[in-house]
Design a protein around this nucleic acid. Sequence first.
DNA 1: GGCGAAACTGAGTGTGCGCTCAGTTTTTCT
DNA 2: AGAAAAACTGAGCGCACACTCAGTTTCGCC
Lengths: 194, 194
Amino acid sequence: MKKKEAILKVATVLFATKGFADTSTQELSRLTGAAEGTIFYHYKSKERLLLVILEKTRDDIVDQFGRFLESRSFVSGIEMIEEVVSFYLYLAGLMENQFQLLHRHFLYKFSESNPEFRKNLEAIYNCLVDFFEKAILTGQEDGSIASDVHPRKSALILFTMVDGVVRFKNDNLYDAGALFNELLKSSRRMLQAH
Amino acid sequence: MKKKEAILKVATVLFATKGFADTSTQELSRLTGAAEGTIFYHYKSKERLLLVILEKTRDDIVDQFGRFLESRSFVSGIEMIEEVVSFYLYLAGLMENQFQLLHRHFLYKFSESNPEFRKNLEAIYNCLVDFFEKAILTGQEDGSIASDVHPRKSALILFTMVDGVVRFKNDNLYDAGALFNELLKSSRRMLQAH
DNA sequence: GGCGAAACTGAGTGTGCGCTCAGTTTTTCT
DNA sequence: AGAAAAACTGAGCGCACACTCAGTTTCGCC
């Protein structure tokens, strides 16, 4: 079971950083010490290998966010927003390669023809956006978030804002740390009741 | 001069939608009616073709935003924010393929080894973020935007928020039109002075 | 019309790719 | 220990790729 895991691990990094088409099974073989045949013995094709990586990514993210929500209790909706945003950034650092992978266009190309890809991507995005929405709804109940905010749409916008900062970091365009405080302030201002 | 243009046009669409590695010069030849040799006669290599496309994209974006700013006058900074956001979404629709291209990771891969790519990408992002920043600074002068907002950092966050909505549309994840009003409301709330 | 330059052609070349398969080693279980 | 199953190997296959080049057509100008 050693080679199988090694292939998964190395492929995650390479697919995320170099891309799918630009990563050859030959390179994968060289870096893992497994023969090329071994890759195709465990995962039937390069595309199926990518699918298994995506499935694992979904499991990891759903699991991590689930445990985060269980372990915490929040004093108000607006505080919960801050904590969810912070946790998102923390997780994007912890699982850097997997978050990078989610930003790669080839996943969306495959999901056009392969419903397995789409299913997993939808599960991930629904999970993430749901947490933002849950926080907004909580805040609207306790009065800390403005009632004229559309919960789902604002959750999507908030999500894309936070995810954009992760992108800045991963693409080496801007230091995410330097934007952290301003991001929390912006989230708060965007949603807060007066 | 007919084939040269056709190659550029078709390559822009294919690189943006299918990706760089997944677009072959053979396919490019078939769709343009030009022989494969013609592609390499006009553009020395596939990579140089991509660079020329990026340069044209930079020119187009800088030109369009420049003319937008000249033709308009704004009653306040916060109004300017709304108009710049709206124009960004409008332009992303008008130049859909070029904006899609800017979201592709291979551009950032090339810019790691080829400074020409980086130069052009920086020019584009600086141009775009500068407009947001300019609007924020204007608003802070006329009092319509809160003074405790960091102009550059907030411009970056605003940019990534708007660009994220464009991504939703281009990746068919969510209808950008449905988010338009909420996006304007969010931008306003995020920056507005009280 | 003639001539040099620019545009264009497409068969050909070497290379690297994903993947197969017949065979070998390692593990598991009685 | 021995047999069956699982894991692993790597040479080899067919194919598609980016790119070349010697030759042909079209264009611009006097």
